[in-house]
Amino acid sequence: MSSVKWTVDALAPKIEDFLEPVLDAADFDLDYDIYAIEEKSEFISPDIAVDFGGDDVELLLRQRGELLLALEQLTLEALRIPHEDRYRIVFDANDYRMLRIEELRLSAETAAQQVLATGRPFEFGPMTSRERRIIHLALRGHGAVTTRSEGAPPQRYAVVYLKGAESK
C-alpha cells in the first residue's frame, strides 16, 4: 500500500475509527495520544506513536505487554498496513516499548563485547521480528562482529558472531 502517508493527519483518524469502538466495547479504562515521533535515531525509527494512559495501563503491560501488542497487531491489520511498514507505528505506554528498544540496543553491545572476548557466537533468546531488527541495526556498523537470525518464529532468535567466522 504505497498510498499510505506516514503522518499523524493521515493515520490518526483511521486509528481512532478502529480503536474507539474496540476500547469502548472492551470497557478498558484507557485513553491515548497519537503523535509524530520527532527525535528519531536509527533505533527509534517509528514515525508515529500511539501512547496509552489511564487506569488500565497495568493491564495493557501485563505479560510483557501482551495486550498492548495485541491492540497494535489488530489495528495494523484493520488498517491494512503492509508488513514491511509496520515498524513505522508503535503502540506504547509508560515508555515500555521505547525502553525495550534501548535495552535491546545495550544488550547488542554487551553481546558484541562478549563475542570479541571469547571468539564464540552469542545467541539471544527468541524475539519478535521487530526486536531482532533492533539487534541487527545496533551492530550493523560494527567492525568486528556481525549478526543474523536463526530458527523459525516464534522461536526465531538473533545470533552475534565474529566477522569471517561463519559458524555452522
Partner: peptide
C-alpha cells in the same frame, strides 16, 4: 491477538 483481548476482558 483477539484471544488476548478476550482474556483481558
Amino acid at each position: 491477538s483477539i484471544r488476548t483481548l478476550l482474556g483481558a476482558v
